[in-house]
Amino acid sequence: MKMAVSTTVNGDPRAFLCEPGETLLEALRGTLGLTGAKEGCGTGDCGACTVMLDGEMVCSCLVLAPEAEGRRVETIEGVAEGSDLHPVQRQFLEHGALQCGFCTPGFIVAAKALLERDPDPSEHDLRYWLAGNLCRCTGYDKIVRAVQDAAAEMRQQARGDAA
């Protein structure tokens, strides 16, 4: 029997019906029409489906849709504020940090989550944080540099705001 789930997606209240065994990724991509999160493996090994669940990044393929009841879900579709790109998004574009772009939504959600908790990560920390996101095109070099520059931009911004 289908279950009714009420949740918040990118700040908006959303209600949907799902099978009890359906994953959050399936619900997002299917019922809710949010196809930004991708399925690369379905087993939590590639990170292309990364979303934030109550402020922590998770693989949405490893969350059952009914678990989202009453929780806060944030997806790639909610990263930009309207038409204003997040610094991580902007730096991905500036660096050419994507080739095919399929892994990009997962990387951006993960990188944003990192910079919100650590505004100045070392390259080592950054690489280990992003180790759950597979990219087959770039060799990660430009991704790492893009996130580093986004971090710098965000620190600059924070200093500006503080002043």
Partner: peptide
């Protein structure tokens, strides 16, 4: 275990 995403669960 796994990745940060996995360890968050």
């Amino acid at each position: 275990i796994g990745s940060v995403q996995v360890r968050n669960r």
